[in-house]
Simulated assay, not measured.
Amino acid sequence: MKLLVLGGTVFLGRHVVNEALARGHEVTIYSRGLHGTPHPDVEQVIGDRADVTPLRGRAWDAAIDTSGMTPAQLRGSASLDLGHYVFVSSCNVYPDWPERPVDEDSRTWQDGEGYGQDKAASERVGSEAMDGRFATVRAGLIVGRHDNIFRLPWWVRRIAQGGRVPAPGAPDRPIQIIDARDLAAFCLRLAEERTSGAFNGTGPIGQTTWGELLAAAGDAELVWIPDEQLVEAKVQEWTELPMWLPADAYPGTWRIGTANAQAAGLTTRPVADTVEDIREWLQTGGEREIGDYRAELRPPDMSSEREAALLQLV
């Protein structure tokens, strides 16, 4: 299969390229060439998502779009000569999420401005332009090596340092993640099989718990701090203790239905395998590899003073 990957050098796109090459596909990537290093066995075309002129006059069996953010970008790329189009969207297209559980039939944003609204509008543009040859994969929390946002790697690194570690909420609280390798494989499957539709790309509900996930990262002493005390201490949601949101305020966070995706072939590996892969990546210089792309979104290191203050809450 001749495959066009829009993106392909940073995180998920990099895994898509690796998986495509492992399956014997011929890969072209389209990116600005500013971040990451392209795989030596792919063709790289340099250009901006806002202008796909460098790709005109060519044809691909399928495209996997890991970088599209706006309707204008989708309008351009969907106008290319493509047999099938797989667009990596986000669960942020659901206006009810994360305050309420969602599934693949839940309503999506139909107007407004913002990340989720733009992704939802992009889905509509792509679906209309491709006329039945379009799949949208609404990604949940993507984790794994090459993670330039560094959420789960933050925990793996901190726990490897040992000592007493503040842990959010309760160890039996569920969490949903998806290894970037599994999401990449699913996107490739949709492209290969010309599958259309909307799919939630994350692990199944009840996949694992916070306790299981963090325990897999090492033998540090995890000190579980209830949500109420974290809120009172003004712990910044999602970033200061990465991936944490108060359960009462956001009960739908880890209840994203994936029935359609599983029926279409999505499978997810044990979280311990993901954690081990991240640990190995960190040990071989993973932090140096990711550069500064979107560094402003990464969770900051927690000072020893802040850790000590949180540990005194329980």
Rank of each mutant, 00 (worst) to 15 (best):
A180W: 02
L213N: 09
P246A: 08
R158G: 01
Q207I: 01
D182M: 02
V235P: 06
I225C: 04
W254R: 03
E221Y: 05
E192M: 11
S196H: 12
R181E: 00
P204C: 10
V231K: 12
E237D: 11
I175R: 05
E228L: 06
L183F: 06
G163Q: 05
K234F: 02
T202W: 02
D219W: 02
L241M: 06
D219V: 02
P270L: 10
W254L: 02
P168W: 04
G206K: 11
T253A: 11
I256K: 11
D147K: 10
Q229G: 00
T202V: 14
G162D: 10
Q161C: 02
R151G: 01
A263Y: 03
G257N: 12
A198D: 04
A198L: 12
D248H: 11
P153Q: 08
E192K: 09
L190H: 10
I178R: 02
F199T: 08
A247Q: 14
I175L: 10
L222M: 08
H146V: 00
S196Q: 14
V271H: 15
A185K: 05
N148L: 05
L241V: 06
W254G: 02
N148M: 03
W244D: 04
A170T: 12
G265N: 07
P251H: 12
R158E: 13
R151D: 01
T268V: 15
P270T: 07
F150R: 13
A170R: 14
Q207V: 00
R189E: 12
D248R: 14
Q176T: 06
A191H: 09
A263L: 11
